[in-house]
Every structure is written in structure tokens, then in C-alpha cells.
Design a protein around this nucleic acid. Structure first.
Length: 842
RNA sequence: GCGCAGGUGGCGGAAUUGGCAGACGCGCUGGAUUCAGGUUCCAGUGGGGUAACUCCUGUGCGGGUUCAAGUCCCGCCCUGCGCACCA
């Protein structure tokens, strides 16, 4: 080691503060606290919208503040957005980077049932914890825009949007079959029902029609699918939304019941098919068990069996029905007439036909549909080939593109696409059918029989048996649910009543039904009853990104001016678990608001990124039960916020699922210590050529990596620069300057501390991001691999612009290469400037 | 079953249009510093072989295209996630 590489050499002529590296300790607790206080005091991240600036709206999926506090998964996405927010701020853009709380929801209510603590108290406490933890991580949120979906000032506008939907006829009531658990006194989601019993408590669950509020999202199905095109979203998420909407083109056709005439409701039934071209091959029909015609179609001798089957099917939860299994079904004893062949076909009832999709009835074409094929085999129903191309004795031939129609009258000889068109036209001409677009997407059940949610701002007239009776005191009454009355906008927010008992009761109306003084009220001498269902947790998150634009506005949810200034969201980061529901619901609301002229864009989220899940050290999903949960508080206390931030970004690509490894944190901690130690070495004005080039290359690499959110490789580049500088007893000022600025989005506390050491008095948060000289990022000479027959035999350093002859001469001189070429003829010489040299020999 | 993403050292992961596979970090090995070290620093580290250089081999598996394949094409296997009788 030469003396000028000896770190102790710097010590002799250094200032007292410039100790040897190993003595310098970065006190992360003190330094991080110091800068967090500074940012707060100076309102460093207060959002501004300035004329002539580009804007960036950088949004996290806001959290549900659970009692467990922050999880290491949360900071992953939040760090990514914070880096982008800080980067764009330094690029001179106006950045909106807010945070808030999606605070309605079941856990707080469950806690209330168990302990009697009001959900608002639990929520407030949890929010406090979350906020402390987020602040501890040094995120550059504009906290003056903090919002809470349970705040009456927020609820008011959630209810206002509901009323807008209602006025458009997009919010309506309907009887819906739901999973009702009498023991728990509530409706359960399909996921909460296992084998016909409640997941919690094993109580019996029945399928029961209940009055629910629905949102007519199906009215937007086409646009929700169509307008996915052009969004900068993960391909998988676009595909999932598309599948969820599930648009399919086909035809509806009327099957007359044998012995009846006309097309009336009891003369037959409508089926939906995507394969009208196979109509001649329909050898039987199937109705869903819920189909209203089942009872009347069933013949006397079949009745007992059919009724048993239908009752069984009804009691099976829908989820169970959807699970693939052996086909079951029963014959009704009746026949329908195939409109194409005029022949009678038997009508069956089977649960593989879903009541919730299409018309709940199908024509079965076993030769060309796998499900019908399985069913026909099992019940020995006829199979008639109508599209040539497969062996329908063995398996269904399902191509709807390739093949030739047979046994199909006038369709014979056509290919399926042409046959579809022709038969659909024929059906239409005969009044027996029409082209039809069908969606899997169903309308959205929007009510919950719960306390801790937004009250639905609707009330209903009450009819009293005794006109002088008081329904609050239990006077006999009927609530006219068929005559809903919306609240006036000026009456909002409709607040939740205080309750001491949050338990759901035996009344499917939910806990709010017990708040009689709240529920019943008189107006103009008449009694009314409020809706006692509340909105689902999705409601608040459907528009929170709009409230962030203008959170203090008490007149409207957001001003047009604020909306024009910031929308759409430029970058939205959150978990893939919300790929369908939240994002679909929010898009739906946004489109309605767009149609009403309340927002200017048809889509709210321009670019979407899902952070990958962080697994436990054992490679399994983190869970309390497994005991592999990592608590960010512990990590920050021990290693510091910057270390946690850098570690999570350095683990791998943001989108990747990756295991947590605490041992890996030491890598970024050492990096931080080395950078800090560098700042204590003497700074010098002059910079050697090699260092200068590396600085420019690093600035370029980090910039480009941050732009594509490749944070792991950006940090690697910063480590390379740091390692290079560690070899220097004196640090070129410009090198430390660039390093500090490039590092600061990742490790903002360290960044500020170094910036101060560089002699600055203000925060670097709004300093211009480093630029670079392109010429300095390109080397004059470069090392190239030299191959013989594609195998690398050595390397050679040549001028960047060297011509083939020069390259060949240089390459031939390489030892290993010369040896390989000895005594052989070079058949071909390949030189791709800057990439490779290859000799092809015989 | 269908859709999407992925399979690279002991581990996390790098790798423009095909162009020196394994950047960077962890771990490990050796050395220096230290009273000591779970500190810091230096060197090494895909596997195999060798006294050494040379060498052989290597990106899930099997083929193919090419001067050249982690990357492109064909056929498989495996893992994760999502959907799952949607006619």
C-alpha cells in the first residue's frame, strides 16, 4: 500500500473533526430526529402549485390504520413514491405527495364489539401510531393535506357522491341473495362461508334474499374495459380487470317449450350463447336451479327429484357451486324446441348453469363445449357434430374460428364466424333472437349491515297502524322501502349515531336499526325511517385522491381549479391485491364524476405500479401465526430510517416478491457509514479525470434508474462511486456534492447532513438535481472481449472509434488469442465496435 | 384447466438492439489493525481441474437459429400470484 492510500495519512494534516474513518460514527437517532424536526419547522414539503412548472401527483394507496401498526411491507411502496416525489421536486416540478387514512372498516368495529371501545377511539389511536411511524421514516408528505375517511367533513362528500349516483339511477335497491348468518346477525362475504358454516364460530349460514343497495357498475362495463387501453399499468392488472369485466359477444335465442306457442314469458325461455353457429347441435337445454320456469316445467313424476335438487343447490353457497366438480343435474320431464331444427330437446336443471350470468339458461351443444360434453356423457344425452375439425365422440371440438359447418341446414359449408353472423341474422328476422354482448361483471352490492361505515343518506316514509303512534317507542309500523327519499346536499353529512352496543342483532337491518332516536324522525308531521345499512369500506377509497387536491374545502369535495391543477395521478403505487376491486370501483366513480363534469379526465390513475410483497426470512408470507413478522420500529431503532429505506429499495426490483433478510441490512449500513466518513475527509477543489468521469457516469446512471424506478441498481451505482472515493485520502468537492444529491431521495436524513457538511444552510429538498456532461460518460478507450469461435480468450483495450483493422491487430496480439489462432486460418473476423471481437477459425 | 409473472453462485440480485454471465450487497476464506471484537480496512470468492499459466464447464430441462444465446424460436418441467363451470 502506498502512503497516499493510507487513510491515516490524512489524519496528520486534518482538522480535529477529520478523524480516521473507523472512529466516525453516524448517530442515526440524533441525525434523523434533527432533520425530521427541521422539515416540520420549515414546512419543507408544503405543496405549491406554481405557474410554468410541471406537476407530478405521486400517490400511495392509503392504509387502513390497523391496531398492529406499520408492517415492513408498508414502507416499501411508500419509500418508492417518496424517492420519486423527492426526485421530481429536485427536478423543479411541483409535487403533490399526500397521505391519509382509510379508516372505516371491520377490525375497529370488531374490537368495539369485544371491548366496548368506540371504533372512533380505536381509529384515532391507530392513526396516531401510523402517523408516528410514517414520520419516523422521513417521508416527504405534505401533512397539511392529511385526510381521514371517517371524518364527518369527509363522509359528507362520500355521501354527496352517493347522492349523485342515486340521482342518475346508478344507485338502486334490489333483493339480492346473500349469505345470512342468523347466529352472528350479519351478512357474510362468500369468502367468510366455508361448507355452509360461518368461518368464525361455525354457525349455519343460509342463502337468503335481502334488500340491498346496489351500484349499477354494469352500465359502465364497456367503458371500464375499453378505456383500460392506453393506461400505463402492469399488463397483468389490465388483464385481470379485463377478465373481471368479462365482455363476450354472442346471441340470445328463444327456446319455445314444446306444446306452447308464441314468445311470451311462459311459452319458453331465452338462452345466451357465444356459439349461435352451433345452434343445430343443441341437443338439450339447461336451466339454472333458480330459474323461475323450473317449477312450472317440471312434470308430476319428476317433481320430487327436481325439488330436492333445487333446494340442495340453493343451500350451497355460491363459492362452493363455482368450485369445479362432477356435473350434477336432473331432468324436468319437459322439452323445448330447437328453433333451428324444430326438434324437441329435453330441458334439464343443473347447477353448472349460473343464475347470475346471462339469462340463467343455456342451449347445450355437447359436441362443441366441454362442459356440455361432460354432462352429456354422464347423462347419456345425444351428441351431434355441427363443426368438422375434431373427434366429437371422444372430446368436444371447441374452436370457434377453424372448421366447417355440417348437419346445419343452410349453414353447411360455412366457417364458424360466417355461420354466427348468418344464424344470428336469421334469428333476428324470425323474432327468435338477436346479437347480444354479455358481461361477467355484476352490479355492486353496496350496503353492509354494519355500524362503522358511512350512513347511506336515504330515508323512507313510515306507515303507522296508529297514526298517533311513535315508532321510536315501538309502535307498529311499516317502512316503505319502495319510496326512498334522498337527503338534500345541505343536510350532509349524515352522522353516525352514538351507540354503546355495536353487536349485529337478529335484525338484518344492522346495528343502526337499534338507534331508534336516530333512525326515526318526523318531518312535516310525517314519520320517516333512515336507511340503516352503511356503505362498504371501498366507498371512502373511491375518491380520496380527489379530496387530497383540496382537503380544506368545506363548500365542495374539491374545487375545479385544484382538480385542473393536479389531476390525473401521475404515479400510483400500491399492492396487487387491489388490482381489481378498488381500482375498478374508483375508476367507475371517476367516470361517473367525469360524465357529470366534476372531473376533466375519464381515467384517474395514469401510471400504476404494484410493489412486490416482502416475505418473512423463511420465505413465507409474514404473519403473526408464523412468528416471522418484522417490525419497522425495531429496524429503525437499531439501524435507522435511512437504512430501512435503502435496504428495502436495494433488496431487488420494486415489483418483485422478495424475502426479508435482516443480515443484508449491514450492507447499506456500512455504505451509509462510509459515505459519512468520506464527508469528514479533507475536501479539495481539484478532481482527477477518472473520478470526474465516474461522477458524471454515476449521475447519469442514477437519474436513468430512478426514472424507471430501478432503485436497486441506482443504489449499486452510488456504492460504486463511494467505494471509488474511499480510495482517496482527499475527496473532490464536486464528487461529494453529486453523491449527496443523488443519494438524498433514498437516504434523506443522511443527504441533509452531508449537505450541511458541504457548507449549505438550507435543505437540499429543492436543490437542482445533478446534471451530467454526456461526453464525460463515454470513455475514449474501452476494454473489449476477444473471442475465438465465440469463446472468450482474452481482453484488449482499444480506442473507442478504432477501425476493424486496428482492432484485429490489437486482438491478435493478445496472448491467449494468438495461441488459439496459431496454425489456423481465420475464416471470418467479426468486429462490432464497442461490443465484441470474434475470430471464426476453421 | 385458463391468464400473468418468474426460474442466473451458498443467499438477495445485475446484465441497451443477441456481444467479456454473475455488477452491487450479504455470507464465506485469508491477511492487517485492535486488549478484545458480532469493529474497520485490504485481498480472494460460480463449479471442476492444475505446481502454475493454459484449460474444461456453467443462467430450470431438451432441441434449434446465429460468428455469438440468460436474452430469439420450438417442445417440456417447476415455482409464485390471480381467475376458476361466465355458456
Amino acid at each position: 500500500m502506498t502512503s497516499d492510500h493510507d487513510p491515516t495519512a490524512a489524519r496528520s494534516d486534518a482538522e480535529p473533526s477529520e478523524r480516521r474513518d473507523s472512529e466516525i460514527r453516524y448517530d442515526h437517532r440524533a441525525i434523523e430526529a434533527k432533520w425530521q424536526a427541521y422539515w416540520e419547522e420549515h414546512q419543507t414539503f408544503r405543496t405549491e402549485r406554481r405557474a410554468g412548472r410541471e406537476k407530478r401527483y405521486v400517490l400511495d394507496m392509503f392504509p387502513y390504520p390497523s391496531g398492529a401498526g406499520l408492517h415492513v411491507g408498508h414502507p416499501e411502496g411508500y419509500t418508492a413514491t417518496d424517492i420519486m416525489a423527492r426526485f421530481w421536486r429536485m427536478r423543479g416540478h411541483d409535487v403533490l405527495h399526500p397521505m391519509g387514512w382509510d379508516a372505516f372498516g371491520l377490525p375497529a368495529e370488531q374490537h368495539a364489539i369485544e371491548t366496548g371501545t368506540h371504533p372512533s377511539a380505536t381509529t384515532a389511536r391507530n392513526i396516531q401510531t401510523f402517523k408516528r411511524q410514517l414520520k419516523m421514516l422521513g417521508f416527504s408528505y405534505d401533512w397539511s393535506r392529511e385526510i381521514d375517511t371517517t371524518d364527518p367533513g369527509y363522509v359528507r362528500f362520500t355521501q354527496w357522491i352517493f347522492l349523485e349516483l342515486y340521482q342518475l339511477g346508478l344507485a338502486f335497491q334490489a333483493e339480492v341473495t346473500v349469505n345470512w348468518c342468523p347466529a352472528l346477525g350479519t351478512v357474510l362475504a362468500n369468502e367468510e362461508v366455508i361448507d355452509g358454516k360461518s368461518e368464525r364460530g361455525q354457525h349455519p349460514v343460509e342463502r337468503r334474499p335481502l334488500r340491498q343497495w346496489m351500484l349499477k357498475i354494469t352500465a359502465y362495463a364497456d367503458r371500464l374495459a375499453q378505456e383500460l387501453v392506453g393506461l400505463d399499468w402492469p399488463a397483468g392488472t389490465l388483464a385481470m380487470q379485463n377478465d373481471w369485466i368479462g365482455r363476450s359477444e354472442g346471441a340470445e335465442a328463444f327456446f319455445r317449450i314444446e306444446g306452447k306457442t308464441g314468445t311470451g314469458d311462459d311459452a319458453g325461455f331465452w338462452i345466451f350463447t357465444t356459439r349461435p353457429d352451433t345452434l343445430f347441435g343443441a341437443t338439450y337445454c339447461v336451466l339454472a336451479p333458480e330459474h323461475p320456469l323450473v317449477a312450472s316445467l317440471t312434470t308430476a313424476e319428476r317433481r320430487a327429484e327436481v325439488e330436492r335438487y333445487v333446494i340442495d343447490a340453493k343451500n350451497r353457497a355460491e363459492r362452493e357451486r363455482l368450485a369445479k366438480k362432477d356435473k350434477t343435474g336432473v331432468f324436468t320431464g319437459s322439452y323445448a324446441v330447437n328453433p333451428a331444427t324444430g326438434k324437441p330437446v329435453p330441458i334439464w336443471v343443473a347447477d353448472y348453469v349460473l343464475w347470475g350470468y346471462g339469462t340463467g339458461a343455456i342451449m347445450a351443444v355437447p359436441a362443441h363445449d366441454e362442459r356440455d360434453f361432460d354432462f352429456a356423457k354422464k347423462f347419456e344425452l345425444p351428441i351431434v357434430e355441427v363443426v368438422k375439425g375434431g373427434d366429437v365422440a371422444r372430446a368436444a371440438y371447441t374452436s370457434h374460428e377453424v372448421g366447417e359447418l355440417v348437419n346445419s341446414g343452410t349453414l353447411d359449408g360455412l366457417e364458424p364466424p360466417a355461420a354466427k353472423k348468418k344464424i344470428t341474422d336469421w334469428l333476428e328476422a324470425e323474432g327468435l333472437g338477436r346479437a347480444k354482448v354479455q358481461y361477467k361483471l355484476r352490479d355492486w352490492v353496496f350496503s353492509r349491515q354494519r355500524y362503522w361505515g358511512e350512513p347511506i343518506p336515504i330515508y323512507f316514509p313510515v306507515e303507522l297502524d296508529d297514526p298517533k303512534g311513535d315508532p321510536r317507542a315501538g309502535a307498529a309500523h311499516r317502512i316503505r322501502y319502495d319510496q326512498p327519499v334522498p337527503l338534500e346536499a345541505a343536510e350532509l353529512p349524515l352522522r353516525l349515531p352514538e351507540l354503546s352496543d355495536f353487536k349485529p342483532g337478529d335484525d338484518p337491518a344492522g346495528p343502526l336499526a337499534r338507534a331508534r332516536d336516530w333512525r326515526f324522525f318526523q318531518k312535516d308531521g310525517r314519520w320517516y325511517a333512515r336507511e340503516t345499512n352503511t356503505m362498504p369500506q371501498w366507498a371512502g377509497s373511491c375518491w380520496y385522491y380527489l379530496r387530497f387536491l383540496d382537503p380544506g374545502n368545506t363548500a365542495v369535495g374539491w374545487s375545479a381549479e385544484a382538480e385542473r391543477a393536479w389531476m390525473p395521478v401521475d404515479l400510483y403505487v400500491g399492492g396487487a391485491e387491489h388490482a381489481v376491486l378498488h381500482l375498478l370501483y374508483a375508476r367507475f366513480w371517476h367516470k361517473v364524476l367525469f360524465d357529470l363534469g366534476h372531473v376533466k379526465d375519464p381515467e384517474p390513475f395514469k401510471k400504476l405500479v404494484h410493489q412486490g410483497m416482502i416475505l418473512g426470512e423463511d420465505g413465507e408470507k409474514m404473519s403473526k401465526a408464523r412468528g416471522n413478522v418484522v417490525n419497522p420500529d425495531d429496524i429503525v431503532r437499531h439501524y435507522g430510517a435511512d437504512a430501512l429505506r435503502m435496504y428495502e429499495m436495494y433488496m431487488g426490483p420494486l415489483e418483485a416478491v422478495k424475502p426479508w433478510q435482516t443480515s443484508q441490512i449491514s450492507g447499506v449500513v456500512r455504505f451509509r457509514e462510509r459515505v459519512y466518513a468520506l464527508a469528514h475527509r479533507p475536501l479539495v477543489a481539484e478532481c482527477d479525470e477518472e473520478t470526474r468521469r465516474l461522477v458524471h457516469k454515476t449521475a447519469k446512471k442514477v437519474t436513468q434508474d430512478v426514472e424507471r424506478m430501478a432503485f436497486n441498481t441506482a443504489i449499486a451505482a452510488l456504492i460504486v462511486l463511494t467505494n471509488h472515493l474511499m480510495g482517496k485520502p482527499e475527496v473532490p468537492r464536486e464528487a461529494l456534492h453529486v453523491l449527496t444529491l443523488c443519494l438524498s431521495p433514498f437516504a434523506p436524513h443522511l443527504g441533509e447532513e452531508l449537505w450541511q457538511k458541504l457548507g449549505h444552510t438550507a435543505s437540499l429538498a429543492h436543490e437542482p438535481w445533478p446534471s451530467w456532461d454526456e461526453a464525460l460518460t463515454v470513455d475514449d478507450t474501452l476494454e473489449m472481449g476477444v473471442q475465438v469461435n465465440g469463446k472468450t480468450r482474452g481482453t484488449v483495450r482499444i480506442a473507442r472509434g478504432a477501425d476493424a483493422a486496428a482492432a484485429e491487430a490489437a486482438a491478435r496480439a493478445v496472448d491467449g488469442v494468438a495461441q488459439q489462432l496459431a496454425g489456423k486460418t481465420v475464416k471470418k473476423f467479426i468486429y462490432v465496435a464497442g461490443r465484441i471481437i470474434n475470430f471464426v477459425v476453421g
